[in-house]
Simulated assay, not measured.
Amino acid sequence: MSSEQPATAPMVDDKALPYHSQIHIETARPNETTFSTREYMYKRFLPAILTIFALLTIFRSTFVSNHHYTPGCGQTLHSEIIKEMERPKVELESHGMSRCPDFKDCLRELILPTMEKVNDRVNFTLSYIGRIDHKSDAVTCMHGPAECLGNIIELCAAKIYPDPKIYLGFTNCLTSDYHNIPQRDFVEGCAMEHGIDFQKLNSCISDEGEGIDLLRASVLRSQQNNVTKSCTIRLAGKVRCIRDGGKWYDCPGGSSVDALVKEINALYEAQEA
């Protein structure tokens, strides 16, 4: 998705951040439809529980498979573990927009399944795309203030809970129904599903919090790396793949999870501890 900014798009700055004033009061809802408890459980909690269980299982199996125990070789095993821990991780970064369907597909189709396989070998960064008015420091987002706020919410989650298993799960929950970002009930539901303290999150995104500064720094990072498409994946400082307009392109080696995992493993093994 292109990051071209509509001429009439509003801007978000420190004094005009909409979420702080609304999050403690009532936020507008798209409709007043209510769901039964069973429907809500199937729609929200059951998929979340299954996702968390799968992530934990895969992460544990990945760790075990990379650290085999051989009786009588305790010292060797210890040395290998220390060497593995000291080995530099591979830089992997995803640049997107919280209310962008391509960002949703990017997370689900490539980032999350890749991280499930190589989480222990990757230093992952979640960055966002927008524009900064260098005269006022106001941040502009392609899909308006709601998207700027969504970006801030996801950046705050990553700041407070730096474990990718937590903040990526939360971000994926939000992008699953990105049209509802940043409605309070929706954000609270995703926070509860992924063990995120909503009050800590709210403190970060409030006028007095650091959320707007996190957004500025993130947008500036994307600009400095000449990233304009949501979603752009960079590996080891280079563009690895782009998801835009519902299609993958500029993906040397392919856009499959296996291809990306293979490349990450090769880069990781090539580095000396």
Rank of each mutant, 00 (worst) to 15 (best):
T171V: 10
T8Q: 14
M115V: 00
L220H: 14
P88Y: 15
V64G: 05
P47G: 00
G74C: 10
Y128P: 07
C241R: 02
V239P: 06
T62V: 03
D137K: 02
T57F: 06
C173Y: 07
P71I: 08
I25N: 08
E116Q: 12
D163Q: 13
R38Q: 12
G253E: 02
I23Y: 07
T232Q: 10
I196Q: 00
L201M: 15
N151R: 06
E208P: 02
R131N: 15
V257T: 08
A16V: 13
V261Q: 11
R99S: 07
C204D: 06
D244G: 02
I205P: 03
M1D: 04
H68A: 13
K104A: 01
L174Q: 14
R44M: 06
Y161F: 07
D163K: 11
C106T: 07
E4K: 06
D197G: 14
P145W: 02
G169Q: 03
S256C: 05
T37D: 11
I166E: 14
A157K: 00
E39V: 11
L50M: 14
D250K: 10
E193A: 15
I196T: 05
F124N: 04
F170Y: 11
C251E: 02
S230V: 03
I25F: 11
H20S: 12
K117A: 04
A48Y: 11
M85E: 12
H134L: 10
K165M: 09
R60N: 11
R131T: 10
S3K: 00
Y128D: 15
R44Q: 12
K159M: 12
V139E: 00
G245S: 12
Y167L: 03
M41R: 11
W248E: 10
S255C: 13
F53C: 07
G211M: 12
Y167K: 04
I25T: 15
T37M: 11
H95V: 04
S206V: 08
H67Q: 04
R243V: 07
R44D: 09
V12N: 11
D197V: 03
K83V: 04
K229F: 05
P164N: 05
A54D: 06
Q5H: 11
T125E: 09
H134I: 13
K200M: 07
Y161R: 08
D185Y: 02
D13T: 04
G74M: 07
N151P: 02
N265R: 09
F53D: 10
I181C: 03
E154Q: 13
P164V: 14
Q199G: 14
S127W: 05
Y128K: 05
H134W: 04
P101I: 03
E263H: 06
T232L: 13
K15Q: 06
I153V: 01
H78M: 15
N265A: 02
M41I: 08
K247A: 15
P30I: 08
M97E: 01
K165P: 04
S206A: 13
V118W: 00
K165G: 03
L201G: 00
L215G: 09
I82Y: 10
S65L: 14
F170I: 09
C241S: 11
F198S: 02
V227C: 01
P6Q: 11
P252C: 10
V118P: 01
D177W: 01
I81E: 07
G72I: 15
E32L: 15
Y178S: 05
L126N: 10
G245E: 15
A191V: 01
S176K: 00
D185I: 10
I111H: 08
L260H: 06
T51M: 14
E147I: 02
I129N: 04
